[in-house]
Computed example of a mutant assay.
Amino acid sequence: MGTVVKRGKTFRAQVRRHGISRSATFDTKASAYAWVEQVERDIDAGASGDTVAPAGATFATLLEHYRDQVSESKRGKRWEVARIHRTLRDPIAEVPLARLAQPAVVAWRDRRLKQVSPASVQREWNLLSHACSLAVREWHWLVENPFTGVRRPPPTPPRDRLATEAELERILFALSYQPGQRPSTITQRIGAAAVFAVETGMRAGELAKLTWADVAPTVVTVRSGKTAAAMRGVPLSPVAQTVLCGLKPDPVDLTARVFDLDASQIDSLWRKAKKLAMIEDLHFHDLRHTAVTRLAKKLHILDLARMIGHKDLRMLQIYYNESAETMADRLKMD
Rank of each mutant, 00 (worst) to 15 (best):
C245P: 00
I171R: 00
P158I: 06
E199V: 12
A208T: 03
L162M: 13
V219P: 02
L244I: 08
A230S: 15
L172T: 07
E169T: 14
S184Y: 01
A216F: 11
V150H: 06
L142W: 01
T164Q: 12
R170G: 12
H140Q: 13
A192S: 09
A229M: 04
S224W: 00
P183R: 02
V195S: 11
G180Q: 05
T221E: 13
A192V: 05
F147H: 07
A213Y: 04
S224K: 14
T187V: 12
H140G: 01
A213C: 02
P249K: 07
T200H: 11
Y177N: 06
E138I: 01
H140F: 04
V198A: 15
V243E: 00
F196N: 02
T200L: 08
V243T: 04
R189N: 12
L244C: 10
T242V: 03
G233M: 05
Q178K: 10
T221K: 03
W139C: 08
G233E: 14
A228S: 14
R159A: 11
P146F: 03
G233F: 03
S176E: 15
L168I: 14
T185V: 09
T156F: 06
L210H: 02
V243D: 00
V136Y: 04
T221D: 02
T211P: 01
S237M: 07
H130R: 14
L175T: 07
V215C: 10
V219A: 01
A197P: 06
P158E: 05
G149N: 11
V143T: 13
R232L: 09
R189V: 10
V222H: 00
T218R: 14
V243A: 02
G246E: 06
